[in-house]
Nucleic acid binder design. Sequence first.
RNA 1: UCCUCAGUAGCUCAGUUGGUUAGAGCGCCGGACUGUUAAUCCGUAGGUCGAAGGUUCAAGUCCUUCCUGGGGAGCCA
Length: 462
Amino acid sequence: MRRSTVKELFTDREVNTDVLLKGWVRTKRGNKQVAFIAVNDGTIIHSIQVVADTDKFSEELLKNVTTGCSLAVQGKLVESMGKGQKVEILAESIEVLGKSDPEVYPLQKKGHSFEFLREIAHLRFRTNTFGAVFRIRHALAFAIHKYYNDKGFFYLHTPIITASDAEGAGEMFKVTTLNLDNVPKNEEKKVDFTKDFFGRPTNLTVSGQLEGELGALALSSIYTFGPTFRAENSNTPRHVAEFWMIEPEMAFCDITDNMDLAEDFLKYLIDYVMKNCKDDLEFLNNMVDKELLERLQFIVDNDFVRLKYTEGIELLKKSGKKFDFPVEWGLDLQSEHERYLVEEEFKKPVILTDYPRDIKAFYMKQNDDGKTVRAMDVLFPRIGEIIGGSQREEDYDKLVARMREMDIPEEELWWYLDTRKFGTVEHSGFGLGFERLLMFVTGMTNIRDVIPFPRTPNYAEF
RNA sequence: UCCUCAGUAGCUCAGUUGGUUAGAGCGCCGGACUGUUAAUCCGUAGGUCGAAGGUUCAAGUCCUUCCUGGGGAGCCA
């Protein structure tokens, strides 16, 4: 007999038919006459109840049915006699596929702290919360591809190992095959990278943007969706050393088009998840964050505020609020400032644009005022900056001048500059942190709980 | 990296101004119960009090250093 998933049993299968179920036991209850076994196979948040008459099964067998073990159950799908579920399986045969010693199995029926579950990240998939989170993670990844595919964007695979060190998005992890116990040195007593695998220093990418621009300046619209790496010693609930980023890049597109896309994209994704992950979101709304669904709906229903950095500074100064950090034109906004604008002043997402050039990256398009660049940050309640992007500088001379001012080696980015030499066009793009979005969508408050295997300073278990 | 709070049973925690043999709930195990829903009721087992030093007649409790975790900050996505 073909196995039915729990999802199929709840949605597709007719009652009073014979079914085969396979899954893992969540709980077992009962008495001398009957045992109730909740079985979950991860296809859906709900577990299905298996009812076993004790006179049909040996004591030995039922003894091995413990929390965490895997089972194959053949039986009849019937309407439940008890309250709490519509259908259940009346077991005719039960096979324990893999035992689970209850003395040492770490998951119990009662809830665990997320901190504890992080220490058993290899088993936390078997909890309701993490099942929900990782099903939603999948749905969101799928929705991202669907969104861009439907819009005619091409999925571009930018390199994970990169030789350019110029992006400036943060500390990079070195990639090398050199023997660290005996590193070859050159005449200047520096590391001789000509002996290394690539014959030059290489790192893990911090962003696919520069390569993404190359694609967009030929294919019109591309997006990347892949892992990125930051070797920063950041210890916060919003940072990991390895995370996934989505970076669309569009030719013939200015900052307004860019903002429109960012807003439409975020709303689409949230709407998609609300329509396709109802059960999981409802569970999270009940167990993790009581305002989750309300907040998600609010994002979909409301326009984002669009505000220039200069106006933002004025609002902060006028607010009369005491901040720990100074508010002054030319200084970057601190978390507390962003939070004030999003959570108190407007109470909705804010897109801040036209930041001072000196606090932003070299590639951003310079405005005519000579002071600001066409940067845009999308700020969300609770998590802060969820998107960072800009219109790119397409003018060769302006771009080179800016690189020289900021000491960025032109020879290393000769290929990037070539696109401005040969048929340059207006173009824009942004980067969305996948895990940050997932935090917002699931209500989880620690980024380590929305990525299956988090990598943080001093931690790379599993 | 800085600030701050915490680390006691498998999990979540309590533990008085330092004072006898270290406490609970849940889980596990054993028992009871004719349909349970994080079942209920009874009982048993389970501890190098994060680690190392120190103060003291006496340290889970005070001091020092280190380790680990949470929250906040910086860096950013």
